[in-house]
Nucleic acid binder design. Structure first.
Length: 346
DNA sequence: TACGCGTGGTA
DNA sequence: TTACCAAGCGT
């Protein structure tokens, strides 16, 4: 280990500042692999606060990996709706089935085997091995990248510097309590060594931190600039049946919002649609609403115009007809919940 | 390797 | 308002 005292200081800090999180075991206990896996997948690029309620609902509805494997995919997507990155939900379901079919319902305990399961990458494999199986796996997420890049004042920009940071983390990770160490480093990054205005006065290893000693710690990690997001435009068709039900369709399995339900609409292009009604599901009197919807995805902004139309009997071949008060029962992502909200004037 | 992939909170 | 960021993964 590069700094023998480092891990002890981190663990001591963790023992005194331990956060109680729904998926976290009591001190001295080891969390069960299913809970760790479920929480870690939900936490990929997603905040602790957002995940907490979803995690509780999933665990209550599907208490074991067998329960989740037997659930219909659509039920999983519905519970996941609003959490984003929907490939995670599809891979979660697939992974559960593989654990049942290939591993007799027992999660493998080593990184290499975990890494073969869908939705489990380097980070999640190491996290499960360390947290659920007490294996000395080197865990590196965005928090730990930041902590380590500051500890060593790494000037190489991310993401190119990740392999080097991983070597540093591997060197730092202790043989004893590796799961607690990983969670401690992530908590440290989330609570003390924050992206902006880190509170170095509360940090257990500030004395060893090169960024803290020699420079402005906020300068790290150095990152390469990201390209700015373009804006795309489209229109959606809010088609209401006489009984108030609205037409939804299932999106393709792959790609953006894959497998989720949508309000039918035009394609999204770099300029506003000139003849949107050509793409409407039916030829009828469409009324353009004043309200529009703006939504930002990972790599572009989207602006949708809304057209409203009415029919007497809705043809089931057009898609699924469902009243807006029941959108919670189907897999409607946030974008189209925003559309519903705009139609009703917020 | 670089990009596609959601959403909500924060400054 | 805009930009950035959060317990990354798949291709």
């Amino acid at each position: 280990m590069t700094h023998p005292a480092h891990a002890d200081q981190i663990l001591a800090w963790y023992d005194h500042n331990r956060r109680r999180l729904p998926w976290r075991a009591e001190p001295g206990e080891i969390a069960d692999p299913y809970s760790v896996w479920l929480s870690e997948v939900m936490l990929q690029q997603t905040t602790v606060q957002t995940v907490a309620d979803y995690y509780r609902r999933f665990l209550a509805r599907w208490p074991t990996v067998q329960d989740l494997a037997q659930a219909p995919l659509d039920a999983v997507l519905t519970e996941w709706a609003g959490l984003g990155y929907y490939a995670r939900a599809r891979n979660l379901h697939k992974c559960a089935a593989m654990v049942v079919a290939r591993h007799r319902g027992v999660f493998p305990s080593n990184e290499a085997a975990l890494r073969l399961l869908p939705g489990i990458g380097d980070y999640t494999a190491a996290a499960i091995a360390a947290i659920a199986f007490d294996r000395p796996a080197a865990v590196m997420d965005g928090n730990i990248e930041r902590v380590v890049s500051r500890l060593f004042a790494v000037e190489d920009p991310l993401p190119a510097a990740k392999p080097r940071l991983k070597i540093l983390v591997t060197d730092l990770t202790p043989q004893a309590r590796p799961g607690d160490y990983a969670q401690a480093m992530m908590d440290l990054g989330a609570m003390v060594c924050t992206p902006r205005r880190p509170t170095c006065g509360l940090c257990p290893v500030s004395g060893a931190c090169i960024a803290r000693i020699s420079d402005d710690p906020e300068r790290f990690p150095v990152k390469t600039a990201k390209p700015d997001k373009p804006t795309r435009y489209g229109a959606v068709f809010w088609l209401v049946r006489k009984d108030g039900a609205v037409l939804l369709r299932r999106r393709e399995e792959k790609g953006l919002l894959g497998g989720m339900m949508e309000v039918p609409g035009t394609e999204w292009r770099d300029t506003p649609p000139t003849a949107p009604l050509a793409d409407a599901p039916l030829k009828l009197e469409w009324q353009k609403l004043d309200a529009s919807v703006r939504h930002t995805f990972t790599h572009f902004h989207l602006e949708l115009q809304i057209y409203r139309g009415a029919v007497g009997l809705g043809d089931p071949k057009l898609g699924t007809w469902i009243t807006p008060d029941r959108f919670g029962e189907v897999a409607v992502p946030t974008l189209f919940r925003k559309v519903a909200k705009a139609v009703f004037g917020k």
